[in-house]
Design a protein around this nucleic acid. Structure first.
Lengths: 200, 200
DNA sequence: GCGCGATGTATCGCACCGATACATCGCGGC
DNA sequence: GCCGCGATGTATCGGTGCGATACATCGCGC
């Protein structure tokens, strides 16, 4: 997850660790923490993979005769060409890996860099995922409501309403996307009637 | 966290692992997963600490002549006296450890076994925690709104509304608690017997 | 009599969090 | 002048929990 988040941010501009973390907090902080304890290892992995390079911002240490104590300079991370490719791949993913709880928010945050069709598919995937969950909660609630503790019940219902609220939000977003989408040019007119076409 | 959840559930009745997991999903599944990968290690730790014992449900293996292949029986977990004490301690906690994101839900789920005063303090702690966060988001949003990407903005605002919604929920709960609380009578002869009583 | 899904116990690798350590920079107070 | 302190900055460590997986048994339908 961090991988996508970091690549997405670095694609906007090169950053060093501290700044990166500030941005992560600002952009995703509402639903995700992303501490240094995961950021730095992730950066290391990405460097090894070749998605990013670390540029020694200043600190231009003259080889020989260490100028002062070890003098640690800012380390500026920046995307490589392969990194951009990798980012494009991640942004093009429109499967469960894009709409599960932990991942959806990050993908959504970078919708600005995502293909419109992929956007809609992710939003719809997320929505059905939530509707599934809603279904599960409602069923289990119906079966056990009477036996349930007052507080447990309250918790379930609050959770249920949260899910329903997010579903409404998604529905709105999907409609907005559809409206602003260019109507699919000539190739496939497919009128609203879902008549069974081409079925044997 | 699992510790409290498990102790709380086992306090209602002894269970084996599988059942325990089902209950965890049913009670807390809306906001927490709790897979076996954490459940079993946690159970082991708690056994070592002496909070629980594992009773060999059936499988009464006749020593000698293994009846069939190893024949693994259900392992029923049950609370010890120390475990009950430990649970009581955990339920009495009314600090940040009770109202942070990851923990609040679990504590709330066992409010039925929690002292009314502690309940209110946890609810209030949770609420100020959220109000703090709200404040942070609003400020950061005011500073950066113009520079923000359309989708990032949408995400922030949805997050903000979620927080505000939960604050309203908590406020309602707190008021209900206060209303149903008995006005501080005489020093109160604390009914130590845990007679399962709903609030009047 | 066979297959398959529910019940059941258990482990492994991995991502991430929170706390912490440590160094430097820049500013205001005295 | 210089001291302290908070912001900036890089980095690691231990612990918790997740998702996938392995493997065994049971009960049911067909």
């Amino acid at each position: 997850m961090l991988e996508l988040a970091v690549l997405g941010l670095l694609n906007e501009s090169p950053l060093h660790g501290y700044e990166l973390r500030q941005r992560l907090k600002a952009t995703l902080g509402t639903f995700r923490a992303f501490s240094y304890g995961s950021l730095y290892p992730s950066l290391r992995r990405m460097k090894v993979s070749g998605w990013i390079t670390e540029d020694d911002g200043d600190a231009t240490v003259v080889a020989g005769a260490p100028p002062l104590t070890g003098r640690r300079g800012k380390v500026v991370y920046k995307l490589t060409a392969e990194g951009k490719e990798r980012l494009a791949d991640l942004l093009a993913e429109a499967g469960p890996s894009a709409w599960e709880d932990e991942t959806f928010g990050v993908h959504f945050a970078f919708f600005g860099q995502t293909d419109p069709e992929v956007r809609v598919r992710i939003l719809e995937g997320r929505r059905s995922r939530l509707e599934e969950r809603r279904e599960g909660v409602v069923t289990s609630l119906d079966r056990t409501r009477s036996r349930l503790d007052r507080y447990t019940l309250q918790l379930q219902e609050h959770g249920l309403e949260s899910v329903e609220r997010e579903v409404r939000w998604l529905t709105e977003l999907i409609e907005t996307e559809r409206r602003s989408a260019v109507p699919p040019a000539v190739p496939a007119p497919v009128p609203t009637t879902p008549t069974e076409r081409g079925a044997p």
